[in-house]
């Protein structure tokens, strides 16, 4: 799949980082506002997909990312699993919101126990997963045009 025109590339260069940051914001504030790991992860995957659409697939940075994607998904899932398992280790209850870092004050960024950690894990996994789905289909299209 080839890239797009110069205007699209320049705009993408400017916008892409902001979309990525917005995704991070949604993930990190998942326990305070609507959204969370899944929504933020989708936005991050969107920013990566935008890059591939503008610059074409097969670039060096994309190849580097796609090699690490299965590992990133595993890391995200293991973070989530670890957060759930902490409760089992501490009190014998799976998925307990164990206060190992304290529960914090409500409505502040550092609060809600382990939920932000779960959100980060889900966010990494969803971003990597959706981007890899896109890459799989993009690669197929490339293959068929040849």
């Amino acid at each position: 799949m080839g890239g797009m025109s110069l205007i699209v590339r320049r705009i993408t260069e400017i916008v892409c980082g902001f979309i990525f940051m917005y995704g991070l914001y949604i993930i990190l504030h998942g326990h305070l506002t609507p959204g969370g790991g899944f929504a933020g992860g989708v936005i991050i995957a969107g920013s990566l997909i935008l890059r591939v659409l503008a610059f074409g697939s097969g670039t060096e940075s994309e190849r580097m990312l796609s090699k690490r994607i299965p590992k990133l998904m595993s890391v995200g899932l293991l973070i989530f699993w670890g957060a759930a398992f902490t409760g089992l280790l501490m009190a014998g209850i799976f998925f307990l919101n164990a206060p190992i870092f304290g529960l914090g004050t409500p409505f502040h960024l550092l609060s809600a126990g382990l939920i932000p950690i779960c959100n980060i894990g889900i966010g990494i996994n969803v971003a990597a997963g959706l981007f890899s789905i896109f890459l799989a289909f993009a690669a197929v299209k490339y293959f068929m045009e040849e």
């Binding site: 595993s74 699993w81 089992l88």
Partner: peptide, 15 residues
């Protein structure tokens, strides 16, 4: 653990 163990294995295998 009936679900936590196989889930853990599934997640750690790709890594």
């Amino acid at each position: 653990l009936l679900i936590a163990l196989p889930l853990f294995s599934a997640f750690v295998i790709p890594l």
